[in-house]
């Protein structure tokens, strides 16, 4: 007849040395008389013994030092307390106001600066007036066409003759320099 849960618990407690004298004697009597109980006892013993095959832990040799270091870090670092929830919105509004003020001041300063520059330069475009270039007279058209020659007239003057002037046209000598 199979053992009940209570009988099994008694058997396990017997193996663990947890029974009082009376209960111990009762279990021992049953073991002596019942082969099934004996077999169960033997199986439980062997099962318990198999746990010795479990892999053994091997703590690092510096475990204690690492623990102390971690504790030192923990105790030295002040706890970073988050701002209380009811004052968080005040901080947010403060930052927003500061940013708006900075933008406003910046805009005002720039507007004031450009206004002053426009007045000082006399440049019509900077006074807010549109630019209307004067029309070029027909007599001046050749001058406009040969403006580049006029700009470099001093160099051409020193050249002496046209052949030398052509040599001066070499890009290495008078090429337009990058602005």
């Amino acid at each position: 007849m199979p053992l009940t849960d209570d009988e099994k618990a008694e058997l396990v407690a017997y193996l663990d040395g947890e029974l009082d004298e009376v209960s111990t004697q009762a279990v021992e009597a049953r073991i002596a008389s019942d082969p099934e109980t004996r077999a169960e006892l033997d199986a439980l013993k062997q099962t318990w013994g198999l746990l010795d095959f479990l892999p053994q832990a091997s703590p690092s040799p510096n475990f204690t030092n690492r623990t102390i270091e971690r504790l030192t870090i923990e105790t030295e670092a002040p706890p970073a307390a988050p701002p209380p929830a009811d004052t968080a919105w005040i901080t947010l509004v403060g930052w927003a106001a500061a940013i708006l003020l900075a933008v406003g001041l910046g805009y005002g300063a720039m507007a004031y600066y450009w206004k002053g520059v426009g007045k000082d330069s006399g440049d019509p475009s900077k006074n807010g007036q549109p630019i209307h270039p004067e029309p070029i007279a027909d007599a001046d058209l050749p001058l406009v066409r040969h403006l580049r020659i006029a700009e470099r007239w001093r160099a051409y003057e020193n050249a002496g003759d046209i052949a030398f002037a052509k040599q001066l046209n070499h890009p290495d000598l008078f090429a337009d320099e990058p602005q």
């Binding site: 099994k8 618990a9 407690a13 199986a43 439980l44 099962t47 318990w48």
Partner: peptide, 13 residues
């Protein structure tokens, strides 16, 4: 605990 260990050892067995 007695009951817990009994069930545990039975399961292991």
């Amino acid at each position: 605990v007695k009951s817990l260990l009994s069930r545990a050892r039975d399961n292991l067995r």
